[in-house]
Nucleic acid binder design. Structure first.
Length: 908
DNA sequence: AGGAACTCTATTTTT
DNA sequence: TAGAGTTCCT
């Protein structure tokens, strides 16, 4: 049944390896020509651990795919002996396709190329019993997960408003990213949720086991636990995988790291996390064991594998290709530390930074020759990223700099509407004058709310655009409902699916009935559908719901019986018909209803490609992904995060303002490393551009409904003059800041073309420096109608509701009226007061590559000391308790302890 | 069951 | 401000 226990087959006629070998030339095979020396080294260094540091646009995927082709073509391994992991399905698909192209044909023979998760499931299906699951376990999506958690929270008699399931789901995610089981979560976390954090986690896992289900995190956690507890199983995989390849290594989290290390036969280095992993399911109350004891030992099994020396002299059946060579770790990780932008969801840049320590004797190959962008773009990006401290260091270069290439542009605008207008015009310009396709242009934003102004504008202009990202096909309500029906049919134990649709469409089976069902099922420990089947035979339900439920149970029974015989697409259609689900939307008069029906049809259509309903469900759980139509010519709008890996002729980067980019929250929560991640995001953004990069910033932006004055991003100051051109403002109101816009402005950017002389001698820059010693100056007010004159709001720190931006009446600026019409008198002289963003106080200049740059906020020395008495506009008088960069912890006499920005506080 | 009124919250996202 | 989610009322 599985190909796993067979010994490696001889290359089949027409099989991938055979074809690859046939395709191989005598000396320099085709696929190797056209690689540059570094790439070629990365491909040909097949043995031992290899780290390929592949800068943006240096041909990373090409190396990865060619390397696989090379391994196959030289007979080093069979396709089934190569483990190749990616993060996204898209990347996996692309790799498969490209390997196919290299080797000539479809790659049916690469069974172990896939995402961490899909490979995880594959492993888990084979050995499910070892972690207490059945092989047909379900995979829960975030939605199910949250509903389940909510039930558990309620079962613990906690207020689910005060303790939102969402929050818990996030914590859960964090733990699983770190590979922590309930017993190993930090004490602080354990105390969360009214002291029930750990208990809830354990209860959650126990519940998943009863449901015969897994969440996404478990797809990594279970295999790790399994390998550790069953060295014999791990050894089989060791024997199998001759070569391991990892894409986007900088994005791996701790759990993925542990998973890889186990498979790479490395003794584990990280004690904490490793000791943590044991069997996840239902380990409540198990006593906390001493660190460093492998979990296998705890469970009374021999401890080998991870924590002991790797079994180097394992017999290696099925290894007909190169038997008898000493065991080597042929792992190749490809990544770019400078493009690590997922720290916030658990990625550990550290994994890539430490590779050579993890794998002693590793070969490190740098790919720095860029084939994508112009010299100016590379120069700008490299100079920017050089401001990061935690990096391995690479410098991209191009062989073909062209004096005609445009420099990276920096543009200023008044507000987000003008920004959208101007970018819209620039797009039309390129389209008309340069004959650009809209498909070659993209707008990359930091946060999705920024998209709106572009959409609004493009709609009025009649400009085609396409938003990438956002809610996906399989996340739509109607799709989830339909899938829930199918799940109930295929998996009678899927309580969550059943609960989702018992009363959809409305059948009069409301909360009360469901609760009864639930209690009954829990008590008897049977699945809810089974419980329903039993309960309708009793007197426990009122006649009406009882009859309805009886009907529904009969429906499901009938559908289940049809499952083995009927064609799955027809059955699916029948289910949706007979359940009344389709009808529900047909009767719905709302505007979305027709679209939903259309989506349901699309769902059925997409099932065609799969053999059966269960196999379709499996696909859906893992590949929450649907193709977008790329037919029409349209500008792409997306976040910087979703742009990673893409490239465009022209890239627009709006919103380069302090607080937005770098994002205030990243700064607050991540400190210096948070800032560095933001900077990498900027780097990713710039390096998406092939020929043109146009950066924008504005001086007023509406955030949470209030107009905020903003200052230019510090990243602008980190761009090298040689590769950047500051554009003259060409808007009707007369340009940005020629008259010392705002007054609080902090950089060379507010001097318009003053930049060309000397960036750091401009009044703006001096002001910025001066500001560091005292208050930043206020933003200017503008307009005259409806201006509240409220106090500026405290970004993030002030959670006190109800008082932001209104009342006060003390004349400190911050609240603006509606979008200002250009040309109106918006440039009033600055008023002395409190700065909006005290991050305006960028630290003293620092020398990098002969240039002065802004220093990060974290280094700024506070003008306060612990014990100082201070006054805060809202909280009144207080005493400084602690200082953290520009943030103060203050014990207020009346308001208690608060964290406030230094800029909002005045010495008394 | 449905709707009005109210509250809360506002990066980034894959699997 | 706006959208989602919840509560409360009929």
């Amino acid at each position: 049944m599985s190909d796993f226990n067979e010994s490696a087959p001889a290359p089949r006629q027409g099989g991938i390896a055979a074809r690859a070998m046939a395709a191989r030339g005598a000396n320099a095979p085709d696929y190797l020509s056209g690689l540059n020396p570094e790439q070629r080294a990365a491909v040909e260094t097949t043995e031992g651990p290899v780290l390929v540091l592949a800068g943006a646009g240096t041909g990373k995927t090409r190396v990865l795919t060619t390397r696989i082709a090379h391994i196959l073509a030289t007979g080093r391994a069979y396709p089934s002996q190569i483990l190749a992991v990616t993060f996204t399905n898209k990347a996996a698909r692309e790799m498969k396709q490209r390997i196919g192209m290299l080797v000539g044909g479809q790659v049916e023979g690469m069974p172990w190329l896939g995402t961490f998760h899909s490979i995880g499931v594959k492993i888990l299906r084979r050995h499910a019993e070892l972690v207490g699951l059945k092989p047909n376990f379900t995979i829960l999506d975030t939605d199910d997960q949250i509903r389940l958690i909510k039930q558990l929270i309620q079962a613990e008699n906690l207020d689910d408003k005060r303790w939102p399931a969402r929050t818990f789901a996030n914590m859960l995610d964090g733990w699983k990213n770190k590979g922590l089981v309930p017993n190993d979560i930090p004490e602080g976390d354990a105390r969360a949720f009214a002291g029930k954090g750990r208990q809830l986690y354990a209860a959650y896992q126990a519940r998943l086991t009863t449901l015969n289900a897994c969440d996404f995190g478990d797809l990594l956690m279970h295999p790790i636990a399994l390998f550790k507890a069953n060295p014999d199983v791990l050894a089989e995989y060791h024997r199998r995988f001759r070569y391991i390849l990892v894409d986007e290594y900088q994005d791996t989290n701790v759990a993925q790291y542990m998973w890889l290390r186990l498979l790479a036969q490395q003794p584990s280095r990280r004690q904490g996390g490793d000791a943590a992993i044991s069997t996840l399911a239902g380990k409540i109350g198990a006593s906390r064991s001493a660190p460093n004891i492998p979990s296998a030992a705890r469970q009374g099994r021999p401890a080998v594998a991870a924590d002991a020396a790797p079994p180097r002299s394992e017999p290696r059946s099925g290894d007909s290709v190169s038997a008898n060579k000493p065991q080597q770790i042929n792992i190749c990780c490809v990544g770019d530390d400078d493009q690590s932008i997922y720290g916030w969801r658990g990625a550990e840049v550290d994994n890539i930074l430490r590779f050579d320590k993890d794998f002693p004797g590793a070969t490190v190959i740098r790919l720095e020759r860029n084939y994508r962008s112009t010299g100016h773009i590379l120069g700008a990006a490299s100079h920017l990223i050089a401001h990061n401290e935690d990096r391995l260091g690479k410098t991209l270069f191009t062989d073909s700099p062209d004096p005609e290439d445009p420099k990276v542009e920096v543009n200023a605008g008044w507000d987000s509407e003008e920004e959208a207008r101007a970018i819209g015009e620039a797009i039309e310009d390129l389209q008309r004058r340069e004959d650009h396709n809209l498909n070659d242009m993209a707008i990359l934003v930091r946060a999705s709310f920024q998209m709106r102004s572009f959409e609004d504008r493009f709609v009025t202009m009649g400009l085609n655009y396409r938003v990438i990202g956002g809610p996906r096909f399989y996340e739509r309500m109607e799709i989830r409902d339909a899938l829930a029906y199918f799940r109930c049919v295929c998996q009678p134990a899927d309580d969550l699916a059943f609960e989702r649709i018992v009363n959809t469409p409305k059948r009069g089976l409301g909360d009360a009935t469901v609760r009864l069902l639930h209690d009954y099922a829990r008590e008897r420990e049977v699945p809810i559908i089974a419980a329903a089947g039993e309960m309708v035979e009793t007197e426990e339900l009122k006649p009406k719901p009882r009859n309805t439920l009886r009907g529904l149970v009969a429906d499901f029974r009938r559908w289940s019986e049809l499952l083995p015989t009927m064609k799955h697409t027809e059955l699916a259609e029948q289910i949706l018909e007979e359940s009344g689900y389709t009808e529900m939307w047909q009767n719905d008069r709302s505007a979305e209803a027709p679209g939903r029906l259309e989506n349901l049809k699309e769902l059925i259509r997409s099932m065609e490609e799969y053999e059966s309903l269960p196999s379709f469900l499996e696909h859906v759980a893992l590949v929450m992904d649907a193709e977008q139509n790329s037919e029409m010519d349209a500008v792409s709008i997306m976040t910087l995060h979703s742009a990673k890996g893409l490239e465009f002729e022209t890239v627009f980067l709006p919103g380069w303002e302090e607080g937005l980019f770098p994002h205030q929250r990243a700064l607050d929560e991540g400190g210096r490393s948070g800032l560095e991640e933001e900077r990498r995001l900027a780097y990713v953004g710039i390096t998406r551009g092939k020929r043109r990069v146009k950066i924008w910033f504005v001086s007023n932006r509406r955030i949470h409904g209030l107009w905020q004055s903003t200052i230019p991003s510090r990243f602008l100051d980190e761009l090298p003059e040689a590769h950047v051109e500051v554009m003259e403002a060409n808007t009707s109101y007369g340009g940005y800041g020629a008259s010392g816009f705002g007054g609080y402005g902090a950089s060379r950017w507010d001097g318009g073309n003053a930049f060309k002389e000397s960036s750091y001698k401009t009044p703006g820059w001096k002001r910025a420096q001066a500001a560091q010693a005292g208050f930043a100056e206020t933003p200017s007010r503008h307009g005259s109608d409806g201006w509240a004159g409220g106090r500026s709001r405290e970004i993030t720190y002030d959670a006190e509701p109800g008082s932001r931006g209104s009342g006060g009446g003390n004349g400190f600026a911050g609240r603006m009226n509606d979008g200002p019409a250009p040309g109106r008198g918006h440039n009033q002289p600055p008023k002395k007061g409190f700065g909006l963003y005290s991050s305006a106080k960028r630290g003293g200049p620092r020398e990098i590559q002969g240039e002065l740059v802004a220093k990060s906020v974290a280094d700024t020395e506070s003008r306060f000391a612990a014990g100082d008495r201070v006054f805060h506009l809202k909280f009144g008088n207080g005493t400084v308790a602690a200082i953290d960069g520009n943030k103060l912890t203050v014990d207020f006499d009346k308001a208690g302890q608060k964290r406030v920005l230094e800029g909002f506080v005045e010495a008394v």
